[in-house]
């Protein structure tokens, strides 16, 4: 039975604490890699010709790639296997050439029947501060 090791300690965390931020520049190759690995073959994410024909300036990023990048920041911080809930609203499209940065802020702590939990607000913004994804998550802590 797997017992993922929690990297965070309940007593060390307070409201307002932030997880280390990650930044990632979106590239067309990166979108193609995500399309292939996820099986999401919507041409708006990899076919520039079709995207332009549909009136878009270029291909755009998968919302779920944004959620995946933010998921990496969450598991780097809390330890893989310690995420218990993860919710996202996709507020803006992402575009190749943008640099996306994660922000994870502690909003609360609780002791539940299942164990100690810390809740966070999560956002992913581009280099100009435009919010691409906003959501919440809960992580298990020691």
């Amino acid at each position: 039975m797997a017992k993922p090791i929690a990297k965070l300690r309940y007593d060390d965390l307070s409201e307002g604490d932030e997880a280390p931020a990650l930044s990632h520049e979106l590239t067309r190759s990166g979108l193609v890699a995500y399309a292939g690995a996820s099986g999401d073959m919507n041409p708006m994410h990899h076919d520039e010709v079709q995207a332009k024909a549909a009136g878009l300036p270029s291909v755009f990023g998968h919302g779920m790639l944004s959620m995946g990048i933010l998921g990496r920041a969450l598991t780097d911080w809390a330890g893989v296997g310690n995420l218990t809930e993860y919710r996202a609203r996709f507020t803006k499209q992402t575009w190749p050439g943008e640099t996306l940065s994660t922000r994870i802020v502690v909003t609360g702590k609780s002791q539940t029947e299942e164990g100690k939990r810390v809740s966070v607000d999560v956002t992913l913004c581009n280099q100009d501060g435009e919010v691409k994804l906003a959501g919440t998550a809960t992580v298990a802590v020691a």
Binding site: P4, I5, R72, G81
Partner: peptide
Amino acid sequence: AGFDSIPAPP
């Protein structure tokens, strides 16, 4: 990291 096998990402 406490797993029996390779875990899947979130």
